[in-house]
């Protein structure tokens, strides 16, 4: 191996740099969590550990209320974005218009939050006016509130934001699936549905589960689009930001930021560890396959 002749210190140095970079990216988050447990808050010379700021946070009904909206919005986003990503990934495998589909599915990644959020806002306001006009002139009362800003419009914003991630994660998992197994199932008498549910889905379940976790966390963390499209209610992040802009950095906003980070890290970290453990198992199996137990 040519690698054996390389400078080992350069190799180690790159590893150190890589880990330092990840550490640096995470540092502010950990620092925030650290401050959130200090009785004296940011900038104090002394550090006394306390849960007080979290207690203050949990005592705030506005925050608890917003948490409920956040979870509801997150669940709804997962329920829509993940199946949509799955269907799109299935479609991608069969369609001849791959470039069009992939552009359409990934484009929202490239449009910044404020831009997409305000375009959607103006779009929904226009649709809302149109619906109101139809309700007034044609007496179609039931369509009056279809596009009123609220849960539905915020949901559209969040689905647009999360669907590219769901699509990519599921597509990557699918690339490890051999389509021949679907054909085998079909030739054993399975319908298209049965082949999908009994053979393909169990093998891409990890991807679907990770996609769900990622989508939930992305939804949980989203601020700009939700803030523009939410109408009347508040989510955890919109409360946090309005706190910050109105009252500056109070100690309980550190606790809120800490909460968001810890939940995100637990979910994402959990998914990573779980899926890596699975990959590990699959690789062990692959190695076992290379040295069969019995001979033919």
């Amino acid at each position: 191996m040519l690698q054996d002749y390389r400078n080992p210190w350069l190799y180690r140095g790159m590893w150190v740099y890589l880990l330092l970079l990840v550490g640096a990216l995470l540092l502010p988050v950990f620092y925030t969590i650290y401050i959130s447990f200090n009785e004296h808050g940011f900038g104090a010379q002394i550090y006394d550990f306390t849960w007080d700021w979290y207690r203050v946070m949990l005592g705030n009904t506005q925050i608890i209320d917003s948490l409920r909206w956040t979870l509801g919005l997150g669940a709804a986003t997962v329920a829509i974005a993940v199946p949509m990503g799955l269907i799109a990934a299935k479609h991608y495998k069969r369609t001849r218009h791959k470039l069009v589909l992939v552009t359409l599915m990934l484009a929202p990644l490239f449009v910044p939050a404020d831009i997409l959020g305000s375009a959607l806002l103006v779009y929904f306001k226009n649709l809302n006016r149109a619906c109101n006009w139809l309700a007034d002139t044609l007496g179609l009362e039931w369509i009056r509130t279809w596009f009123e800003l609220g849960f539905g419009t915020a949901l559209v914003g969040q689905v647009l934001w999360t669907v590219p991630y769901a699509f990519i994660v599921i597509l990557i998992t699918m690339s490890r699936y051999h389509a021949q197994q679907t054909e085998a199932a079909r030739s054993c008498g399975a319908t298209g549905w049965q082949a999908f549910w009994r053979v393909e889905f169990p093998q891409i379940r990890v991807g679907v589960a990770s996609a769900s976790a990622f989508v939930f966390i992305l939804s949980f963390n989203e601020y700009t689009r939700t803030n523009l499209l939410k109408g009347g209610f508040d989510t955890f992040t919109t409360v946090l930001i309005s706190h910050m802009f109105n009252t500056g950095m109070s100690e309980d906003s550190y606790a809120m930021a800490g909460t968001v980070s810890v939940i995100s890290m637990l979910v994402v970290g959990g998914v990573l560890v779980w899926s890596l453990a699975r990959v590990e198992r699959l690789e062990r199996e692959a190695r076992a396959a290379a040295t069969p137990l019995g001979s033919a």
């Binding site: 051999h178 197994q181 054909e183 085998a184 079909r186 030739s187 054993c188 298209g192 169990p202």
Partner: peptide, 20 residues
């Protein structure tokens, strides 16, 4: 008729066993 409705069945080159 699609594959599942024909009186045929197929053996593939490889990777066709359901690994799970």
């Amino acid at each position: 008729l699609p594959a599942n409705e024909r009186p045929t069945t197929m053996v593939f080159q490889s990777y066709a066993l359901f690994p799970h």
